[in-house]
């Protein structure tokens, strides 16, 4: 049996989610619901749930305040939120699972599937810390980005990424320390996230961090040399913008 706790200050959101779980994920038992940080903390301490569905806005504070009360978070966290663009971005950067209200049943099943499949040591703590850090630093250029693949999760500062290259439907990250990380998400997704961090899509298959550009040559062909020595082609269409 999988034990779940729902923390939300809106009664209908608690009610709706617990009934949806009942329908779409009968193996999950909702063992308790809470509307405030204080009652949620007590509930979690006594009931030891496997999953906590956590809303960000609670009557006595922010959802993160609850997470900060645990030294090591011993449960899976799925964040629920009414739409706020900045928050959604922060979730994406930190690869933290989130659901938007009202909850799409398919998204719910997907999020729970992922949460249950992950081992607890999948750096959830680090990802949540990165989320909290990113939310605190909204508007700053450098952010923490969680890169997840089958080997594990790497949290990198965007300033430590030299460039990204697409590889079929995956993306390979080339880091300052020489390491490479392959992530099963498209370059397009990362382009959308990273363009505000000073990244430049110079080619269909390439996304470069402008701060690591060594030089740009325009003749005979447009090329960007990165400070780690990599040479990246510039597509014809992007030439003018560089």
């Amino acid at each position: 049996m999988v034990k779940a706790v729902i923390v939300d200050d809106e009664i209908h959101a608690r009610e709706s989610l617990s009934r949806m779980l009942n329908v779409y994920y009968p193996s999950i038992t909702v063992i308790g619901k809470a509307e405030s940080i204080k009652s949620a903390y007590d509930l979690i301490k006594t009931q030891c749930p496997d999953i906590v569905f956590l809303d960000m806005q609670l009557t006595d504070g922010h959802g993160f305040d609850l997470l900060k009360m645990f030294e090591n978070i011993p449960f899976k966290v799925i964040i629920i939120s009414a739409y706020q663009e900045y928050a959604v971005k922060a979730f994406k950067f930190s690869a933290v699972d989130y659901l938007l209200k009202p909850v799409d049943p398919d998204d719910l099943v997907k999020a729970v599937d992922i949460a249950l499949a992950q081992a607890l040591n999948d750096k959830q703590q680090e990802r949540l810390n990165a989320l909290i850090e990113n939310t605190r630093n909204i508007g700053k250029k450098d952010k923490l980005l969680a890169l997840r693949n089958s080997d594990g999760t790497y949290i990198v500062n965007t300033s430590e990424i030299v460039r990204c290259e697409s590889d079929n439907n995956a993306t390979i990250f080339y880091l300052v320390d020489g390491n490479q990380v392959r992530v099963n998400r498209t370059l397009k997704e990362f382009d959308e996230m990273l363009n505000e961090c000073g990244f430049l899509r110079c080619h269909q298959s390439h996304l470069v961090n402008q701060r690591h550009i060594e030089k740009i040559s325009r003749f005979p062909s447009s090329l960007i040399t990165m400070n780690n020595g990599d040479v990246i082609p510039v597509s014809f269409r992007k030439r003018k913008s560089i």
Partner: peptide, 9 residues
């Protein structure tokens, strides 16, 4: 979004 969630409930 909270009204819509209430309706969903």
């Amino acid at each position: 979004f909270n009204s819509l969630t209430a309706i969903q409930s």
